[in-house]
């Protein structure tokens, strides 16, 4: 393709390849209800390999994580009707005996610190402790304590039965790109 006058070298082929190596669905852009619905349905279709349990798990994880992107992304676009929409990335991949689900979005560093701490706690706990943590957090949330509402991530870890693979990459002094990847095994789904 013609050499571009922009500062990024970009090859759609490499991009597609990178994405499509094992990738079933990938979306980047504004996240709203209709995108979540259609991507959610899409995920149900492409993971339909007879393993209903893995499929249900992916769908549950998708709903929790996509919602976080939708609500907390610091990168947003304005719709024609003036509404602000969060931008983010949703990717579902298939590798041998497991699926992966990855979300990514730009976040304010100040907002993300407690989330990272929470992920680290989650990853350090075994299943029983995780369930206890969920009960405890739910109780705190019900009492209206701040920063306690994020049961979603605990739920994701419990559903996936695997740690939360998190990555934070600074994009400016105040903001970073935050992504979470989870593996969902096709087998051993209880």
């Amino acid at each position: 393709m013609e050499k571009r006058d922009d500062k990024y070298d970009f090859s759609l082929y490499e991009y597609h390849n990178l994405l499509h190596q094992n990738i079933l669905v990938s979306y980047k852009g504004p996240i709203d209800e209709r995108i979540m619905t259609v991507i959610g349905e899409n995920i149900e279709i492409v993971t339909n390999d007879g393993n209903d349990k893995a499929r249900t798990k992916i769908f549950k994880i998708f709903m929790e994580l996509a919602q976080n992107v939708w609500l907390y992304s610091a990168e947003s676009c304005k719709t024609i009707s003036g509404k602000q929409l969060g931008m983010g990335t949703l990717v579902i991949g298939e590798f041998g005996n497991y699926y992966t689900f990855v979300t990514g979005n730009v976040v304010k560093n100040t907002d993300i610190e407690p989330v990272i701490e929470k992920c680290e706690i989650i990853n350090s706990l075994d299943r029983d402790s995780l369930r206890e943590y969920r009960r405890e957090q739910r109780r705190l949330a019900n009492q209206g304590k701040p920063n306690s509402g994020n049961i979603g991530l605990i739920q994701v870890a419990l559903t996936a039965e695997s740690p939360l693979d998190i990555e934070l990459t600074p994009v400016s002094d105040e903001e970073s790109f935050f992504s979470i990847a989870v593996k969902i095994k096709k087998t051993n789904c209880k």
Partner: peptide
């Protein structure tokens, strides 16, 4: 795109909307 780390390139390539799939 197996890990969280590999997802970040998407912020640096001017992409407004992208979709791969069916």
């Amino acid at each position: 795109m197996e890990s969280a780390k590999e997802t970040k390139h998407r912020t640096t390539d001017n992409i407004a909307i992208s979709y791969t799939g069916v």
